[in-house]
Computed example of a mutant assay.
Amino acid sequence: MRLPRALPLFAVVAAVASLAACSSSGSPEQGKDPQAKQVDRQTAASPTEKPTPQRRPYTISFGGDVHFEGGLRSRLADPRTALGPIASVLRRSDLTMVNLETAITTGGTPAPGKQFTFRAPASAFTALKAAGVDVVSMANNHGMDYMESGLADSLAAIRRSRFPVVGIGKDAAEAYKPFRRTVNGNRVAIIGATQVLDAEFIQSWTATADKGGLASAKDEASLLRAVRQARRNSDTVIVHLHWGTEMQKCPNQAQLSLAPKLVKAGADVIVGGHAHILLGSGYLDNAYVNYGMGNFVFYNSNPATTGRTGVLTLTINGRKVMKDSWTPATIQGGVPVPMTGAARTRAVADWKALRSCAGLSARP
């Protein structure tokens, strides 16, 4: 048998190098499994690059007007239970909002000539948070019941508590500034403003470029500008308004005029209260409008009118309001108690019937 002639050294080295190259650059089946390859790709990605979250529906619940005046003040002795049994409903949603219709102060000077002035200590924020409330609006006709000194106390309490509040601020920029949160990949922006202000307080209570106060819906240009700005970088834009006429069952002309302007500016949801009673809810084109949430945590209620309340829950994905649901309740001892059985069924039907005079639809 003839033996092969010895190869030169440089040829042996080249052959070994070639073999190694083939081994390292082969297909996954030849040297690396697919999972390991995926890990390599992830490792190679920029460490600062964040994956875009997949957007999916979220829920947001709304309650009506809240204060802790009169007999309700004692409920703040234990903030964990201050809102009573309705808290179990509020906690179910991804976001929850109410109208906080009071100044947050223990001092201050009552607004001159006002028949009703509301104030509460900062523990009101603790109570709301404990009940599952995520954000409140203080843009209403009681938000500055204790005038400038009460405003200063309210703003200081907001800063200390870090509880999200809209519709009030040290200047107009802060008062119209939206609350923002990303929920299930949806960038949500909520703006608060009031269309209801006593004539003698419009000037002194309205926030301006260099003065603190409330976000006013009477200044439509400023409110619409805030909505358009929020629209640019939000998936859902919500406007919470204090509006309507006390004890009037149908929306007034000011409400009917403002709602379509807000929708045109980019609002997807408009919710509000003030009238002490429930008003209609439904769709205005593709947007969702509620004209009146009624009382919620309130010392004065009539079971047949002002004592009827509830929680509005919307299921939303981006700009699309996919579903609305109503959890009816009655105010007992100043706090909402959810209804059950046949009474609940009748209350839901009554609530749906309210939209007949509101010019709203059951579907978009």
Rank of each mutant, 00 (worst) to 15 (best):
G63S: 12
G64Y: 10
D65M: 09
H67K: 11
F68E: 11
E69G: 02
G70A: 15
G71M: 09
G71R: 06
R73H: 13
R73C: 00
S74C: 02
R75W: 11
L76E: 12
L76P: 11
D78C: 04
D78P: 01
D78A: 07
P79T: 06
T81F: 10
L83A: 03
P85C: 10
P85S: 01
P85I: 11
I86A: 10
A87H: 03
A87W: 05
S88P: 03
S88A: 15
L90I: 12
L90R: 06
L90Q: 09
R91L: 03
R91H: 06
R92S: 14
S93N: 04
T96K: 00
M97P: 02
V98I: 13
V98M: 00
L100Y: 10
L100H: 08
T102K: 00
T102E: 04
T102I: 02
A103R: 06
T105L: 04
T105N: 05
G107F: 14
G108K: 03
G108S: 02
G108A: 07
T109E: 14
T109W: 08
P110I: 08
A111T: 14
A111S: 15
G113I: 08
F116M: 14
F116S: 12
R119A: 11
R119L: 10
A120C: 13
A120H: 10
A122N: 11
S123H: 00
A124R: 02
A124V: 04
A124Q: 08
F125Y: 14
F125S: 07
T126P: 08
A127F: 11
A127H: 01
A127E: 06
A130G: 07
V133R: 13
D134Y: 12
V136M: 11
V136F: 07
V136Y: 07
S137M: 03
S137A: 03
N141C: 02
H142G: 12
H142A: 09
M144P: 05
D145W: 12
Y146I: 05
Y146C: 04
Y146R: 02
M147V: 13
M147Q: 15
M147F: 12
M147I: 11
E148A: 09
E148R: 15
S149E: 15
L151R: 00
A152R: 15
A152F: 10
A152L: 14
A156K: 08
A157N: 00
I158T: 03
R159V: 13
R162D: 14
R162I: 00
